[in-house]
Design a protein around this nucleic acid. Sequence first.
DNA 1: CTAGGTGCAAATAGTTTGCAACTAC
DNA 2: GTAGTTGCAAACTATTTGCACCTAG
Lengths: 138, 138
Amino acid sequence: MVSETSLPEILRARGLRLTAQRQLVLEAVHELGHATPEQLHAAVREVAAGVNITTIYRTLELLEDLGLVTHTHLSHGSPTYHPVSEDQHAHMVCRQCGAVSEVEPELLAPLAEELRRQRGFEVDIGHLALFGTCGECG
Amino acid sequence: MVSETSLPEILRARGLRLTAQRQLVLEAVHELGHATPEQLHAAVREVAAGVNITTIYRTLELLEDLGLVTHTHLSHGSPTYHPVSEDQHAHMVCRQCGAVSEVEPELLAPLAEELRRQRGFEVDIGHLALFGTCGECG
DNA sequence: CTAGGTGCAAATAGTTTGCAACTAC
DNA sequence: GTAGTTGCAAACTATTTGCACCTAG
């Protein structure tokens, strides 16, 4: 499992620098679980007020490139970022109430397998969002 | 099946007006199959040059409300609209080459069934996007 | 010291809104 | 005639870029 601990090494291996901002953004992604750049910015600011939103965007792009975080598009608007270290899971979004819940990867495995076999398509389960209506709202 | 033919009636039933713009946008959605507001605007403009992008947005919202079209978020950026009359289908987007292909609803039926049973969640299959890597790029 | 990183301001893309002019009915 | 509709300009939100200054190594 890739964790925050490895950030310094991963950066060093690429000749990149470890900065407070990068640590804070990665920590915030872990803390919040699923968060938009805006939300991460707010979280980081509570610790380091001067951090610019631009840096959040640049850092998220970097962390994603380094394989430490990914993002998904849940509904409209901003993407949400989460750690890749977490169990791969899909999201289920209710269009009525906006509730987001997680879908266990086991449920998706057969579909993923089918697509791989039939089409040679490798589904990224962590980047999957199912829209619909939840039990409460249905 | 709801088709373009019913637009006048559906509008009338709500006390709304049938305009050239509305017909053109709906036709464009049918013609293009999956298109962003931008692309639909371009298509409509080929027939009626004066139509404003604002009208495209407003009309898509209306048509969606009327149940004639839906939209999905394929990858980043703009949503893509398509007719609801078409067979419900999901989309498969390759993150390398950007290719979009359709996934037959049969493949998704078991998953949808499972979620309905276990969680009472009604998945909107037409609004589903699977991201990953296609055979060519893998 | 110096390449990489950050903050700030400005640019850009996508979408929404206010309002006066227009038109379907 | 009149309520619904449109076009235009301006506002907004989310994101990206250019650039001078700063700092980790």
